[in-house]
Simulated scan of single mutants.
Amino acid sequence: MLIREHSDEVTDDELIGIGNLLLVAGHETTSNMLSLGTLALLEHPDQLARVRDDPVAVDGAVEELLRWLTVVHGGFPRAAMQDTTLGGHPVAAGDLVIASLAAANRDPALVDDADTLDITRPPVAHLAFGHGIHHCLGAPLARIEMRVAFPALLQRFPGLRLAGEPEFRHHTLIYGLHRLPLAW
């Protein structure tokens, strides 16, 4: 539709950029969230059982997994408007600062016992999808995908278990797994 209706306004490079953004933001993040969330639930069998057996539990589980895992760790860079201090470190006007979304989601000021996965925890205003103008446009779709996928996976394969060591992705923009060996 974009090409059909705006082909004279969009360059090939812009179309490639849009396609890349849709692939990374719309597929990579959710697929890594599903694999990491599956691993987290397998490592917490009591919480896995709740997601599998209680349709009401999945909404809270999705929000808690998003907070606890945060697949996009870095926010967008910002320039300091004036000299200031952050966390005891001086920041000069013009310096670039990048917030860690993962650290913000584990901040004890946000939630008690922030390093513990607890799908019964009341949802909090996490930053897994960013914030403000940079809030993920696909957040509602990602939530729906996870709310459907986790219970479906766990009900279809009730004996799901790890079948080896997961292989984590390192040095990438999106936190995730290269490999999650499973058996059922």
Results as ranks from 00 to 15, higher is better:
residue 2 L to D: 05
residue 3 I to D: 15
residue 6 H to Y: 12
residue 7 S to H: 14
residue 8 D to I: 00
residue 9 E to A: 15
residue 11 T to G: 10
residue 12 D to Q: 12
residue 12 D to G: 11
residue 13 D to Q: 13
residue 13 D to L: 14
residue 14 E to R: 12
residue 16 I to F: 02
residue 16 I to K: 03
residue 17 G to I: 10
residue 17 G to V: 04
residue 21 L to Y: 03
residue 24 V to L: 10
residue 24 V to H: 05
residue 24 V to C: 00
residue 25 A to P: 02
residue 27 H to V: 13
residue 28 E to T: 02
residue 28 E to K: 01
residue 29 T to M: 06
residue 29 T to K: 07
residue 29 T to C: 02
residue 29 T to Q: 07
residue 31 S to A: 14
residue 31 S to G: 00
residue 35 S to F: 01
residue 36 L to Q: 03
residue 38 T to M: 04
residue 41 L to Y: 08
residue 41 L to M: 09
residue 44 H to E: 12
residue 44 H to Y: 06
residue 44 H to M: 02
residue 47 Q to N: 07
residue 47 Q to C: 05
residue 49 A to C: 02
residue 49 A to S: 10
residue 49 A to H: 10
residue 51 V to H: 01
residue 54 D to F: 10
residue 57 A to W: 10
residue 59 D to C: 01
residue 59 D to Y: 13
residue 61 A to I: 03
residue 62 V to R: 08
residue 62 V to I: 11
residue 63 E to I: 07
residue 63 E to T: 04
residue 63 E to W: 04
residue 65 L to D: 06
residue 65 L to S: 09
residue 69 L to V: 04
residue 71 V to C: 14
residue 72 V to S: 11
residue 74 G to T: 12
residue 76 F to E: 12
residue 76 F to K: 05
residue 78 R to C: 04
residue 79 A to P: 00
residue 79 A to W: 01
residue 80 A to R: 02
residue 82 Q to L: 14
residue 82 Q to R: 15
residue 85 T to W: 05
residue 85 T to K: 03
residue 86 L to Y: 04
residue 87 G to M: 08
residue 91 V to Q: 09
residue 94 G to V: 09
residue 94 G to L: 09
residue 95 D to E: 15
residue 97 V to C: 02
residue 99 A to F: 13
residue 100 S to R: 02
residue 100 S to A: 06
residue 103 A to N: 12
residue 103 A to R: 11
residue 104 A to G: 15
residue 105 N to G: 08
residue 106 R to L: 15
residue 106 R to W: 14
residue 107 D to A: 11
residue 109 A to W: 03
residue 110 L to C: 04
residue 110 L to G: 10
residue 111 V to I: 14
residue 112 D to H: 10
residue 113 D to G: 09
residue 113 D to W: 01
residue 115 D to H: 13
residue 116 T to C: 08
residue 116 T to G: 01
residue 121 R to S: 01
residue 124 V to Y: 01
residue 130 G to L: 05
residue 131 H to Y: 13
residue 132 G to Q: 06
residue 132 G to M: 04
residue 135 H to Y: 15
residue 135 H to M: 13
residue 136 C to K: 08
residue 136 C to S: 13
residue 137 L to D: 13
residue 137 L to N: 06
residue 138 G to E: 07
residue 139 A to G: 08
residue 139 A to C: 11
residue 139 A to S: 15
residue 140 P to I: 07
residue 141 L to G: 06
residue 143 R to A: 12
residue 143 R to C: 11
residue 144 I to E: 13
residue 144 I to Y: 13
residue 144 I to D: 06
residue 145 E to Q: 15
residue 146 M to P: 00
residue 146 M to Y: 00
residue 147 R to M: 11
residue 150 F to T: 05
residue 153 L to H: 00
residue 154 L to K: 01
residue 155 Q to I: 06
residue 156 R to H: 11
residue 156 R to Q: 08
residue 157 F to I: 12
residue 159 G to M: 04
residue 160 L to C: 07
residue 160 L to V: 13
residue 161 R to V: 07
residue 162 L to G: 10
residue 163 A to T: 00
residue 165 E to L: 00
residue 167 E to Y: 00
residue 169 R to A: 14
residue 170 H to G: 09
residue 172 T to V: 03
residue 172 T to S: 14
residue 174 I to R: 01
residue 175 Y to W: 09
residue 175 Y to H: 15
residue 177 L to D: 08
residue 177 L to K: 03
residue 178 H to Q: 11
residue 179 R to I: 00
residue 183 A to D: 15
residue 184 W to R: 04
